[in-house]
Design a protein around this nucleic acid. Structure first.
Lengths: 305, 305
DNA sequence: TGATAAGATAGTTTAAACCTATGTTGCGAT
DNA sequence: ATCGCAACATAGGTTTAAACTATCTTATCA
C-alpha cells in the first residue's frame, strides 16, 4: 500500500522550488502550518529527512532530499499527464471509440459514416466491428462497444436506443423473373415461390413475423447469414428473398442482374437505430458520434411529411 | 492541482482486476461501501465512468475505463517504485553520500577510508570533495555534504561532532638542517628561524595560537594553503614549518629530503573529527559510514593508555 | 538589543475516509 | 413463480486526516 499522497509530493516540490515553507504556502494557497504538517508527515512516512531547516531563513533540501525530490518530480509529472489525459478524455472529441455494427449494413453505411466523422474530428479514432445482434448487445453490456448500430426489434430497457431511420423491406428477384416486370409485388404473389432467407437475427425474426402476419407459410429453399450469398442465390434464379438493407447496385458478386421491387402490403418498417447502455454516461466523443449518426441518416433518409 | 489520489487508483485497479467491488474490498481490507464511495468519487473527479455495473454480478470496465486503467496501472507502478526506492534509501546501506574533507588530509586518509568502506558496502557510492573549513561547514549546512571530515577547532553547537583521533603537531625541517640531528625540537629553538606557514583555516589559527601561547612571534617567510608546496619550500631550505597532517614519506615532490621531529613542548592536540548537522536525521548509510570512520581511526591511531 | 522573518506548535474546525446496517436489483434454484 | 442469494448503492455515524487561526521559538540584521 502506498504510504504517501501525491498532494504531499506536490507540497514538498513547491517547498524545494521556493526554498521556503512560507512562500510555498502562499503559492499553493494553503496556510503555512498546513505545509509544515504535510512535510513532517511525509518525512515520517518515508523515514527520510528531506529538508534542512534554517530557522529564520527558509529550508534547503538535504542531500537525501535532493535525490528524493528528483524522483518525486517525475512521479508528479506522470500524475499530471495522467490527469490531463483522463479529464480531457471526457471533455474533448478525441481518443478512441469502438462501434459495433450489425453485419449486413456495416459495409453499406459504416464507411461513409466513419469517413464523414473523421473529417469533422480528425483526432478521433473509430474502431468498427461487425456482429449479429446477440453479440452486439452482449458486447455493449460487457463494455466492449461504446455504441452499436443495429435493427431495433425487441427493445431492452437497459439500452438507450435512438432511432436513425425507417426503411421498407423489399422483394429481391432475379431480373428475369416473371414478377420482375411489375412495379411492386405482393407477398401473396410470392407465396409459392421458394424463399431464400437471410438467416441472421433479428432479420429472420422480422421476416418470418411479416410473413406470418400476412398468413403465409413460406417455402424456404435456402438460408444463409450472408447478405451477399443470398443475393447470389437469388441471382442464380433459385428463389426470391425479402430484405431490408439495400446495397448500392443490382448486380451480384458473380455478375447476375437482380430486381428490387417494393411490397404492395403495408408492413412494419425496419428501424435502424443506434444504442448505448443507459447505465454508461457517455463521453463527449461518444455523444458527438451519436449525434453525427442521427444527422447522417436524416440526410440519407429524409422523413416524408 | 491533482484531483485524485493514488489510493483511489489502487482501489480502481483492484476492482478491475477482480471484477467485483466485494472481492476487491476483501482483498484490500476495506469495507465494500468504502470502495463504492471511493470509486464514485474518482469517477466524478475525472468526469469519466470507469465501470459498467451489473447489478448482481460484479462490474466490468467501460471502454473508456479500460484505457484509463491501463494508464493508472503505470502510474501506480511508478508510485510503488518510488516508494520502494525512498523507504529503502533510509533503511539500507545503499545509495550515494557526499563527504566533504579538509583539503590537507583528504589525500592522506580518504583513499583508504573509501576503499575500505566500498569492500563492506559495494552498493554505496561515495562522493568526496575537498575544501577549507569554511566551505565545508557552509556546504554541510546548505545540504551539500552529508558528512565532513576536518580538524576540530571552534565547535559549533549545530553540529554533531565525533572525534576520530588526536594527533600531535610536529616540526618539519630540511633534512640537512642543524636541528634535524636532534630527536625532538623545541619551539623556542626555532623562534628565530623563518617559518613557512600552512595558510589554511583552521590550521593557521591552530599554529599561530600555539606559538602565541609559547610566547613566540614567528618570522613568517612564506605562506601557502598547499601542504605539498609548504613541504617543497621547506625542502629547499627556505625555513621550517609546523604541521599536523603527516603524509607518508619524507621526500618532497621535487625529491628533497625532509626531517620530521616531535615538539618538546606539550601542546594542544590536533583533533581529527567527523561532523554532521545535528538537525539532519542520518540515513543508515550515513550512520554506517560514520561508524566506519570511527573504527578506521581507532585502528590507525590506537589510544594510548 | 529589538525588529523582523521563518518554522514549529497548539487547539479547533472542516472534510475525507471508513465502518455498520440496510436497501435495491438481477439471477438462479426450488 | 417466488424465494434466496449475490452484489452494488445508500444512509448515518465515527474516526482520522487536513486545513485554518493564533501563538511560540529562534536566527538574522540593523
Amino acid at each position: 500500500m502506498l504510504r504517501f499522497t501525491l498532494r504531499q509530493l506536490e507540497h514538498a516540490l513547491a517547498i524545494a522550488e521556493l526554498g521556503s515553507l512560507a512562500k510555498a504556502a502562499l503559492h499553493l494557497g494553503v496556510a503555512q502550518p498546513s505545509l509544515s504538517a504535510s512535510l513532517q508527515k511525509l518525512e515520517a512516512q518515508l523515514g527520510l529527512q528531506l529538508f534542512i531547516r534554517h530557522h529564520a531563513q527558509g529550508v534547503t533540501p538535504s542531500p537525501q532530499g535532493l535525490r528524493f525530490l528528483n524522483e518525486a518530480r517525475s512521479l508528479v509529472a506522470h500524475g499530471n499527464d495522467f490527469q490531463r489525459d483522463s479529464t480531457v478524455a471526457g471533455m474533448l472529441v478525441e481518443g478512441e471509440i469502438t462501434i459495433g455494427s450489425f453485419s449486413t449494413f456495416a459495409p453499406v453505411y459504416a464507411p461513409k459514416l466513419i469517413a464523414g466523422f473523421q473529417v469533422l474530428h480528425p483526432k478521433a479514432r473509430i474502431k468498427l466491428e461487425e456482429g449479429a445482434q446477440e453479440q452486439l448487445l452482449a458486447g455493449l453490456r460487457a463494455g466492449h462497444y461504446d455504441l452499436v448500430l443495429f435493427y431495433t426489434l425487441d427493445l431492452q430497457d437497459d439500452l438507450k436506443v435512438t432511432e436513425l431511420a425507417r426503411v421498407k423491406p423489399y422483394v429481391l428477384l432475379n431480373a428475369n423473373h416473371a414478377l420482375a416486370r411489375k412495379k411492386q409485388v405482393s407477398l401473396h404473389e410470392m407465396a409459392n415461390e421458394p424463399l431464400i432467407l437471410l438467416d441472421i437475427l433479428p432479420s429472420r425474426t422480422y421476416f418470418t413475423r411479416m410473413l406470418e402476419s400476412a398468413g403465409i407459410t413460406p417455402k424456404i429453399s435456402f438460408s444463409s447469414p450472408s447478405l451477399e450469398l443470398v443475393r447470389g442465390l437469388v441471382g442464380q434464379g433459385l428463389g426470391y428473398s425479402l430484405l431490408i438493407t439495400r446495397p448500392h447496385g443490382d448486380a451480384t458478386y458473380d455478375g447476375e442482374q437482380l430486381a428490387i421491387r417494393p411490397l404492395v402490403e403495408e408492413v412494419e418498417d425496419g428501424v435502424i437505430a443506434i444504442a448505448a447502455l443507459k447505465s454508461l454516461r457517455p463521453t463527449r466523443l461518444i455523444s458527438t458520434f451519436e449525434e453525427f449518426c442521427v444527422n447522417f441518416f436524416k440526410r440519407i433518409h429524409p422523413k416524408r411529411p
